[in-house]
Design a protein around this nucleic acid. Structure first.
Lengths: 239, 239
DNA sequence: CAGTGGTCTAGACCACGCG
DNA sequence: GCGTGGTCTAGACCACTGA
């Protein structure tokens, strides 16, 4: 697997920041210095720095340089489109997934609308509960276009759907639109989650798109409120 | 106010997408075509297209072109660091802000920790309630470094603090780290909000940084759950 | 095959920070 | 004035798409 030059520079610098080679509030070497060090052009260095900036590693200050900014390595990275399995690995928590349902269905009107379907294309419905510390705290309902996701099995759903799609099927997940709201629990929520005394659930609706800009998945992730946390890094855009 | 070339191209294309000149699922002109049309270099066109892509206007597909993707113009843009006033204008709702408190204080230990203060630097505390349709549904608690925000008045707080900082004081807000959780209402929440029967509040903690990478504001925004909605556009990052 | 976007280069000029 | 990052250019080569 050959990497791009800017990708190598990005990873090298990101690793050094994570390892404390460059401390928070200190400056990275200047662009000219990096250009010499990596034997490349300045635009290539700048591309790596741009990615570091977008991902919350550095802040560029005109006339001065690139400052390393604070970054909690173990934060919940929902905003970057991370799957539950990847997340669980980062958090290093005891987690478990139960597959309640896995079937191909003709989508209901509601699901057709969410997936923007004109025709009666078949849809794979996956319903899973996620346990943290033995309690069922997340209910995930996925609806995927069947034509794109052949060969889903219960074992795959217990592991990671994304991992399967990306490695086995070669699909490239590109972007998602996400919506977070607070709702009253449904009957299904009460059945599938250990809600104890909680009066609300946090609902995350996800519309996931592939590389070629086609919408191929709609997901509802329903969380018990005490176990929900969302962190985000946002840059201010003025246009 | 002179604009950069890529900024002009960005705005021109964004406007045309919003106006339906380029429809969802259709392609923008190719980079070479745009380069000729705007009489510029390809890298400059690419910079404009990169911004469109980051902001959820287009998806670039190799070998084919830039596809316009769906985008709800009136969505709640919390993720881009937008102030309540800017938001209210977009939503075109009847909104009102009450300033409950505006004072300079020696920060408590908790606030010092949030703002990462070593010394006893003075902090301006602003507490506001936001009304939507006559009901008090948001409680905003802001803590700003006093040395940076001289001259705050109640009238400014009723309008928009960000607007004052950016225009009158020339501060440049650059990025923020945000955390969303669900909590039990405090006594203060019960006093300041019309909670009716709601058992939870949505708490958004914001750590806001300036241009020069200094942390200068900590904000807690406490929402009644039925009036809370957060939407986000996220690209998948694989590194 | 021609056309598209992705990467990379070498160089130019500008705006800003700081001494 | 010097070093920093920000913008812009003209050109090269590659990888991918689709006819």
């Amino acid at each position: 697997m050959v990497k791009n030059k800017y990708e190598l520079i990005y990873q090298d610098l990101a690793e050094q920041i994570d390892d404390g080679v460059y401390l928070v509030n200190s400056y990275l070497p200047s662009e000219n210095e990096l250009k010499a060090r990596y034997e490349t052009s300045r635009e290539t260095v700048r591309k790596a720095l741009r990615e570091l900036s977008e991902h919350g590693y550095i802040q560029k200050v005109r006339g001065k340089g690139s400052v390393v900014i604070p970054r909690n390595k173990f934060d919940f990275p929902v905003s970057g489109l991370v799957s539950f399995k990847e997340l669980a690995e980062k958090l290093n928590q005891s987690v478990e997934t139960d597959v309640n349902r896995l079937q191909t269905v003709i989508p209901s009107r509601h699901i057709k609308k969410q997936l923007n379907l004109e025709t009666d294309a078949a849809v794979v419905e996956v319903i899973r509960t996620r346990k943290l510390g033995g309690e069922r705290v997340i209910l995930d309902k996925d609806y995927l276009l069947e034509e794109k996701v052949t060969g889903l099995t219960e074992a795959i759903c217990k592991d990671s759907i994304y991992h399967y799609l990306e490695t086995a099927l070669g699909l490239v997940i590109s972007f998602a639109k996400k919506e977070i709201t607070i709702e009253e629990p449904t009957v299904e929520d009460r059945e599938c989650l250990d809600l104890d005394g909680f009066h609300n659930v946090v609902v995350i609706k996800n519309y996931v798109y592939l590389d070629d800009a086609t919408l191929f998945q709609y997901t509802e992730s329903r969380h018990r409120p005490d176990r929900f946390r969302f962190v985000d890094f946002a840059r201010r855009h003025t246009h």
